[in-house]
């Protein structure tokens, strides 16, 4: 029968325009539809494949929604205690200085319980990459207030909105660590549009490439949504993120090659 659909042409190798990176496993991700974690995982996996560093990369997962990241990336990984990933990464990198070491942490993990480990790893200038997913909420435990929850933002532990007089202010951890002499590259990205995904991937690639320079720590914040925790549809959540999260957590480079860009 004649191939009127052209399907046999489409599946030919020479016509391939995109395929799932081999560094991602075939495991179905547990993330909620619309969540940014899946995209962020894919970008990291793609960069590892493109750089050809699968055998030389060790990742550290946090406690939080992305604790099971080790099920999805086909690389050696360690699961750290809540907030301690930068300390874990410090030891790995010091013992194996030529390996690529990254942590993947949420805002509760990195900016609340792990504040000390984050600041000191940054300040020591460990030659690692930190990928920091900021969705302003504790997703895994059911939508509690995070250190990054915006003023007035509702969560299960700030049901009437975050009252900064009573509950303290949202913390800009990324701007904070950019001040430290040990950080080499600090940027804030997002993964909610094709254009932002491309930019975020470039930033992730940069964070890996920087490890060859041995000039300090790279931190890539990815402002993301939590449509389940925010109790919105994925489309609404992304819109809400752009209108509310971005004014307080503006995407852009904060520190390049060890120099502040003026956006801090």
């Amino acid at each position: 029968m004649a191939d009127r659909t052209g399907i046999n042409d489409i599946v030919k190798d020479e016509n391939l325009v995109y395929k799932k990176t081999s560094v991602l496993t075939d495991r179905v991700m547990h993330y909620c539809p619309g969540c940014g974690h899946g995209t962020a995982h894919r970008l990291i996996a793609e960069v590892i494949e493109e750089m050809g560093i699968q055998a030389d990369t060790i990742g550290i997962t946090p406690v939080g929604c992305s604790v099971l990241m080790y099920n999805y990336l086909d690389i050696d990984m360690q699961e750290a205690a809540h907030g301690r990933a930068p300390a874990v990464a410090t030891a790995i990198k010091r013992l194996m200085p030529d390996k690529f070491v990254f942590t993947y942490q949420g805002d509760g993990d990195l900016a609340a319980i792990g504040t000390a480990e984050t600041i000191h790893a940054c300040n020591r200038g460990e030659n690692i990459a930190i990928f920091f997913i900021n969705n302003g909420i504790y997703g895994m435990t059911g939508g509690q207030m995070a250190p990054t929850t915006l003023s007035g933002m509702k969560s299960s532990t700030s049901p009437y909105g975050r009252d900064v007089q009573m509950m303290g202010n949202p913390l800009k951890m990324t701007e904070l660590v950019a001040q430290l002499p040990g950080t080499w590259y600090v940027t804030r990205q997002a993964v909610h549009t094709p254009a932002s995904v491309r930019k975020a991937k470039k930033a992730i690639r940069q964070a890996f490439e920087n490890q060859k320079l041995k000039k300090g720590l790279s931190l890539v914040e990815i402002v993301s949504n939590c449509n389940s925790g925010w109790k919105m549809s994925p489309v609404e959540a992304n819109k809400w993120m752009v209108e509310n999260m971005f004014p307080f957590y503006p995407p852009g480079d904060i520190k390049l090659e060890g120099r502040l860009t003026g956006k801090e």
Binding site: A80, A81, A91, A116
Partner: peptide, 19 residues
Amino acid sequence: LQAESEIAAINMVYGGAAC
């Protein structure tokens, strides 16, 4: 390495031991 706390130190031990 002198860590920032005992907590960080034991987690560095975790990272190194896991290698």
